[in-house]
């Protein structure tokens, strides 16, 4: 019984991200590398939080203090990551004598990958040990603890992973465009979602507030990042029906609506660019990439 629940929860939390990884990231080595770098930055933010929490002895019993600092550090490190990525871009262009060696939509792409790496680490660090406990032996709920502990944790972890992906896109985009409303929105919504999870620590936990709020915020930000990245509904249906030109854009037949929303935005963006730039010639892209291979 424990095994079943464990596998189910793990797939609930990490199934959609796994699909996103396989479809959008695994085919490109540069994206894998950027994802590792962004994961590293998330870890650094966690360490910074831990050190501050450890150093300020009188506040060690209040968890809220640590969580506030954690959010601040995460956003600061996200900004640092943005600076590093920009710097790396410039360095690459210098190496290539001013030629652009990255695809024209690489900015949003990198933002997506960075956000995804951030989110995966965040979700993993909220959930891996829970999975470990879930494997058994033992049963939850013996001492009046909520028996929904594992599924709710999984659902929240999934929402955090997807939210971080959207936040990454919006944060980077609004920094590039110098419209700081997006940055503020990201920080504020991060505070809201994380802050509301404190309701989980009450007895009994108020799951019926935290989970809907997290997913509503997720849907709002998914739509926002979809718009920002240049997606439209027509393009989405085109992406769903037409056979896409490269493996990158192959529709995975995603298992949940939220993923479709979120990740379709990225796919769609590419479709719309193709359509506008290269006058609906799905093969042109393939030709170009095969030429580069030869």
């Amino acid at each position: 019984m424990a095994y079943l629940e464990c596998i189910g929860c793990t797939l609930l939390a990490f199934g959609p991200p796994l699909a996103m990884f396989l479809v959008t990231i695994a085919s490109d080595p540069i994206r894998i590398i950027i994802m590792i770098v962004s994961a590293f930055f998330w870890l650094m933010s966690l360490l910074a939080t831990g050190i501050v929490w450890f150093a300020v002895v009188p506040l060690r019993t209040t968890l809220e203090f640590g969580v506030v600092f954690s959010i601040i550090f995460q956003e600061v490190f996200r900004f640092l990551l943005y600076l590093v990525i920009r710097k790396a871009e410039k360095g690459l262009q210098m190496v290539a004598d001013g030629h652009t060696i990255l695809a024209d939509n690489h900015r949003d792409m990198m933002a997506y990958v960075c956000g995804f790496g951030y989110g995966v680490m965040s979700g993993a660090f909220g959930f891996v040990n829970v999975v470990r406990d879930c494997w058994g032996p033992g049963t939850v709920g013996l001492r009046g603890n909520p028996i929904e502990f594992f599924p709710t944790s999984a659902a929240l972890a999934l929402s955090m992973i997807l939210l971080h992906t959207c936040w990454g896109v919006i944060f980077f985009h609004s920094l590039t465009e110098r419209r700081y409303v997006g940055v503020v929105a990201v920080v504020v919504s991060h505070f809201i979602v994380s802050g509301l999870t404190f309701l989980n620590s009450l007895t009994p936990p108020l799951y019926y507030i935290t989970i809907p709020v997290a997913y509503v915020v997720l849907i709002i930000f998914a739509i926002l990042s979809f718009r920002i990245a240049g997606g439209s509904i027509a393009g989405l249906s085109a992406a769903a029906t037409r056979k896409p030109p490269t493996t990158l854009e192959v529709d995975a037949g995603d298992d949940s609506a939220t993923v479709d929303n979120d990740d379709g935005g990225f796919r769609q963006r590419q479709m719309s660019r193709n359509a506008s730039d290269e006058v609906v010639d799905p093969d042109s892209r393939r030709n170009r990439s095969s030429a580069a291979m030869l």
Partner: peptide, 24 residues
């Protein structure tokens, strides 16, 4: 370095956060 920082400074905080289902 990172392991020892985590183990002796961060782990306690992290476990507490996990136990009450607060997501960072």
């Amino acid at each position: 370095t990172v392991f020892f920082i985590y183990r002796y400074m961060v782990a306690e905080f992290h476990d507490k956060v996990n136990a009450v289902q607060v997501f960072l």
